[in-house]
């Protein structure tokens, strides 16, 4: 039961990855891509990590640390990239 749940979470995380990364290939603006990438990448990665956590509960401190750093860093990184790409650096 737990095994099925963890595999389901990991597979759904990979589907999230594909769903968020495929818009990178289009001709959209940076902010649109950043939005889809940060939302689905963070959610997909978190669901993969939760799936791993269900699989091997003995490594929980490590995986919880990964969850926290994913949630915080990816959010901050999204803000920083949006701020930097909208102010200058256009003609490099």
């Amino acid at each position: 039961m737990i095994d099925v749940l963890s595999y389901g979470l990991i597979v759904s995380g990979i589907i999230f990855w594909f769903w968020g990364t495929l818009p990178l290939l289009g001709e959209r603006s940076v902010l649109f891509k950043l939005h889809s990438l940060s939302v689905s990448d963070t959610l997909g990665s978190m669901s993969i990590v939760v799936g791993l956590l269900l699989k091997i509960p003995s490594e929980w401190p490590l995986l919880v640390l990964a969850l926290i750093s994913l949630a915080i860093w990816n959010t901050v990184l999204g803000y920083v990239l949006a701020y930097c790409s909208s102010t200058g650096g256009d003609d490099v």
Partner: peptide
Amino acid sequence: IWQTMLAFASIATK
């Protein structure tokens, strides 16, 4: 360059 940076961010996480 910013699209490349986005790709880099995605690769680092993955």
